[in-house]
Amino acid sequence: MDIDIPSDVHDAAARLGAGVPYALKVVAAQLTGDPDMGRPSSRPGVRTVTVDGELFEDCPALAVDYVHEAERIEIRSVNLASSAEPALLAQRQELVFERKSEQPAGPAADAIAERQVADAWQRIETWLRRHAPATVEILRPGASEEEIADFQQILDVRIPAELKALWRHCAGVSAETDNDVSFMLGNRALMRFEGIDWVYRQYMESQQRIGNDEFPIWRPAWIPFCSYGASDYASGLLMDAETGKIWYWDRYGERTPEFESLTVYLEEMADLLETPALSDGTKPGLLHGGLVWGPPVNADQAAQWAEFTG
């Protein structure tokens, strides 16, 4: 199913709130599985999905109009939901699944987080097995409960349930070369435990020597899990064990929040793999049988890279 979101609709979504473009992507992803999920509008052929703004950060209640034609869906508009529409939010055809990362702490919340990560990773790995066998070959097996417990003791920091769930399925990439191993969204590589430990200790030592609380080099709760390459730790992603948020880090001291949670990061990656038309930026593609997000900057790679369109 092809999804078309015209540029003017993207622009309108951005003006309505910082979280609206992401909510629009989620709606588009759901429509690929259930094209008739919306209710008929007053205009012939146009259906409307109402989005509960409380499900997304920085997002008001929305009315998304779309047209379903054969194997194609076109998002026609996104607007603020009218005051008469909140009662419709509970109806079955409306957007009901939640991506909020701010869950109450406890075993029940951990179980939900673990299931969400496992489901997202399963979607990613299923796509890789179908389309990118070279990437599957460099995935390391999942870590055992004992290995994760031992690693937590080595780091001496509480590892969040989401990160443990990811490592149970894949404990990094096994390739010793950086060629085609940075397959995660943003062209990043899943780190092995030894790499995580090295980066964590290097930056914690720097924090103790020259860092301060106002402009920290590293915090004890920051756990890196993605890097620039299999053995290149110039930059990457970390999880804040206290908040669950995902931050970008690099060797020059940049620390920038990027995703609300690991679940959001993995689900967005899975969405873009399954429905490439959702992307308004980097695109999934194949290079030497592996997943590479692009188009690549390197001219030689760009010449051999093939965009995946579904």
Rank of each mutant, 00 (worst) to 15 (best):
D271V: 03
R99Y: 13
T309N: 07
G281H: 11
D240L: 11
T243G: 03
L287S: 03
E268Y: 10
E114G: 10
W247G: 00
F193D: 04
M204V: 02
V173F: 13
S279N: 06
M191C: 02
D280P: 03
V51W: 05
V46C: 02
W121E: 03
N212P: 05
S261Y: 11
E54Q: 10
E147A: 10
R15Y: 10
D213K: 15
L278Y: 11
L31H: 05
R92H: 09
A18V: 03
Q152D: 01
R255H: 12
A120I: 02
L16C: 00
I217V: 15
H131P: 07
R39W: 08
F259D: 00
A230M: 08
D4H: 13
S227L: 06
G106N: 06
S174N: 06
R130T: 11
E194K: 07
F193T: 00
Q91T: 14
G290A: 15
E94D: 06
T309K: 13
Q202I: 07
K245W: 13
H10A: 05
R219N: 08
S182V: 01
L185W: 14
S7M: 14
D250H: 05
M239F: 11
E102R: 15
E260H: 14
F225G: 00
W247P: 02
L190K: 00
T135P: 03
A230C: 12
D271L: 09
T135L: 04
L291F: 11
S279F: 14
S82Q: 11
P257R: 08
G53D: 04
R43C: 00
P104A: 07
F308G: 02
E147F: 10
P104Y: 13
F97R: 13
L272I: 11
A118Q: 11
